[in-house]
Design a protein around this nucleic acid. Structure first.
Lengths: 216, 216
DNA sequence: AACTAAAGTTAACGCCGTTAACTTTAGTTT
DNA sequence: AAACTAAAGTTAACGGCGTTAACTTTAGTT
């Protein structure tokens, strides 16, 4: 447990230092195991110091989650290739999403944890960061599924499948060791995007899908 | 806080009573907020009594999760209609999965929480309950996608999409109020099952999907 | 140079998980 | 029936936690 001593009484940039230490705590102990006292200790500051910068433990978690949303959004932008066809762009976005979840499992789970649901309602920074992310997903789906009604369903499907896959993978629930993980992710996203593309194409030819009724 | 007094020194069926109280705690405070001491208090027993029946707090959570897996599996069986065509059966299973998650959000999240990942490796009851569930899903997918390689991808996709949708819905992340929730679930599962059916049908006609066409 | 508000400290409260040492009881053995 | 034993429950304690109140130090302004 690294205790960082410091020369000046005032830290200078404690808020960010706490966030950095919190990020490490997250990696080491998960969101549930994150202890505010330990974060303070590692940062070399008293147990009560964090309360000058965060209302409570949840506020620190919310700030960490907001960082996570922004970071994931940046990855979306960095990985995107606007010259690719819509299907490839959607696939790429899905892979980026899953890769992020596997890179930062605790942060990712925090971003979608029950504790944050209520905070998201109040914390504007957090909410807008989350909405920004959903916007990026919507853009990617819109290119593939222009029809408004199908678009809604398409967005929900797309987010659901990558979100579910990310969580199941990082919990070791899907039978996929590290070597074939990427293959599986590629196959699932590709298959999904292909299916979406076809359904969208069908819709253009007059038939209405999405009613779940029997159609051969 | 209901404190239940009792006449006899020995409780008689404390283990199950603790599980029942734990289930209530889960509903009221979530898995993270479940306090062993409070469970004991509500059950009308001393704070140390639970340790005669569970190694520690995690063991109680694991037992609750195992109950959850069994319950969900029973719902699968109860809702299934073996006379329905494969696609309908898969859709129905998906709806059952999501409905369970929305009925018992805290229990569902517990079943797939990080804390349980390690326990699942050791606790045989818990692991087999989880595997039983995956077996039911596999059966439903197999009817639709016989080809072995596509079957693997199909299982992962199917589980991912319902799992992701369940979590996103119960976190209020998908823009769907209570009224249109069921419609959305129906539409997503139907669209997915339809896509899966078609891809499987394509495979029978010689073309091999699953790699999603060109890959960078 | 004095003042003030921000930033950090110490000490305390109550809750928690967990353990050790003890007591009560139900069931078995003699 | 009496004695024994092991299971099941109790009390009391330890240390860690989140949080707050009251205090101190410091940087920046007047």
């Amino acid at each position: 447990m690294a205790r960082v001593p410091r020369s000046t009484y005032h830290h200078g940039n404690l808020r960010q230092a706490l966030l950095d230490a919190g990020r490490q705590e997250l990696r080491g102990h998960g969101a549930a195991g994150l202890s505010l006292r330990r974060v303070a200790r590692v940062t070399g500051v008293s147990q009560a110091a964090p309360y000058r910068h965060f209302d409570d433990r949840n506020a620190l978690l919310a700030a960490l989650a907001a960082e996570g949303f922004l970071e994931l959004h940046h990855r979306f932008i960095a990985d995107d290739r606007s010259e690719d066809p819509p299907r490839c762009r959607l696939e790429r976005l899905g892979r980026t999403y899953v890769r992020f979840a596997l890179d930062e499992p605790a942060l990712f789970q925090l971003m979608f944890s029950a504790e944050l649901d209520e905070l998201q309602a109040r914390d504007d920074t957090l909410r807008s960061a989350g909405e920004q992310l959903y916007g990026a997903l919507q853009d990617a789906v819109r290119g593939l599924v222009p029809d408004p009604e199908q678009f809604r369903v398409g967005c929900a499907s797309a987010w659901s499948i990558v979100h579910g896959m990310a969580l199941l993978l990082l919990h070791g629930r899907l039978p996929a060791d590290r070597s074939c993980r990427e293959q599986l992710v590629d196959a699932v996203t590709a298959q999904f995007a292909l299916g979406l593309e076809r359904i969208a194409a069908d819709a253009c030819h007059g038939s209405v899908a999405g009613d779940g009724g029997r159609r051969r």
